[in-house]
């Protein structure tokens, strides 16, 4: 399959470069839109006088809560990521290495898969009522719990793949030596599944960061996250596209940084997890 002819090399690079262009175009377009006035955007001007107005209005207008939304998103996405990693790793280890009867394994996995496939909006109303009745509505903890639950099936599935990679003999040997479960987890399992943790963690972070309908139902002003802040620019009569673009540009920054720093790690973790 590896022909080294010049033509095929050129073809490959052309295909890649073209696809990259198609992928990147809308991003450049959003960033540019953030610096345009609404009318320049609507008229589709390629040459325009850049303006900071949209960024100013997103960051400093007294009606905008973008910075707080941003802080909330950071808290929600990172806390739910940590929680989901802990819960899923423990559960996956328990299910695959601690000899549960197979019906436990299968019913839990089946339930999590079914839940994962149902649109989250179906449960959002029930969650609101539950949280409200125990005073957890309009708290970040409520949203964190909801996101942890939403991402748990995916995490359970991915961590399951990695845990099954941990040789049983290794676990047994460690147990023979008198290591208890926490020690086995820390010294035997964790080092092996680290790439899995990275991949799962980053995916749950991103899914939590982007999640819209559940936060829309659960949050109020103090607890709203970035997608809600962005959603506000779609008003009842018109859409403030340029401010939306500015807010979007800002909201993509953390994920983009994450990507630049950990790109290698993400792909390796993702693929070694999903492609086995």
């Amino acid at each position: 399959m590896h022909s080294d002819s010049l033509i095929s090399t050129i073809t490959r690079h052309t295909v890649l470069a073209l696809s990259a262009l198609i992928v990147i175009f809308p991003f450049l377009w959003i960033v540019a839109a953030g610096f345009k006035t609404q009318i320049d955007l609507l008229l589709g001007k390629f040459l325009f006088v850049p303006t900071w107005r949209n960024f100013e209005s997103v960051l400093f207008n007294s009606g905008s809560d973008f910075l707080r939304n941003f802080a909330n998103s950071v808290i929600v996405a990172s806390t739910s990521m940590v929680l989901v990693l802990v819960v899923a790793t423990l559960a996956a280890y328990s299910l695959y290495r601690l000899r549960w009867p197979s019906w436990v394994l299968h019913s839990l996995l089946a339930w999590s898969l079914v839940f994962h496939m149902v649109p989250p909006i179906t449960l959002a109303g029930a969650w609101f009522t539950m949280f409200r009745s125990i005073g957890m509505d309009n708290t970040l903890s409520g949203i964190i719990l909801a996101h942890t639950t939403l991402n748990l099936p995916m995490a359970l599935w991915m961590m399951g793949v990695f845990i099954r990679d941990v040789p049983t003999e290794l676990v047994d040997a460690a147990s023979m030596d008198g290591a208890r479960t926490p020690q086995v987890l820390r010294h035997v399992v964790l080092p092996i599944v680290r790439p899995g943790l990275a991949a799962t963690g980053i995916l749950s972070f991103i899914f939590s960061w982007n999640e819209f309908p559940v936060v829309l139902t659960l949050a109020q002003r103090q607890t709203a996250t970035v997608p809600i802040g962005i959603g506000k620019y779609a008003q009842d009569n018109t859409v403030a596209f340029t401010e939306m673009a500015a807010a979007s540009t800002l909201s993509m920054l953390p994920a983009f940084l994450l990507l630049l720093i950990a790109q290698r790690f993400i792909v390796r973790g993702l693929t070694s997890g999903a492609v086995k």
């Binding site: 073809t11 890649l16 696809s19 990259a20 962005i230 979007s248 993509m252 983009f256 990507l259």
Partner: peptide
């Protein structure tokens, strides 16, 4: 088509991961 391309690997990977970072609403 692109298996075996090594030049610009990091760049392409970063670019191709970008879309999943964007909220659906945007």
């Amino acid at each position: 088509l692109t298996i075996g391309v090594t030049r610009g690997r990091t760049f392409y990977r970063t670019v191709f991961l970008l879309p999943i970072l964007v909220p659906g609403i945007i």
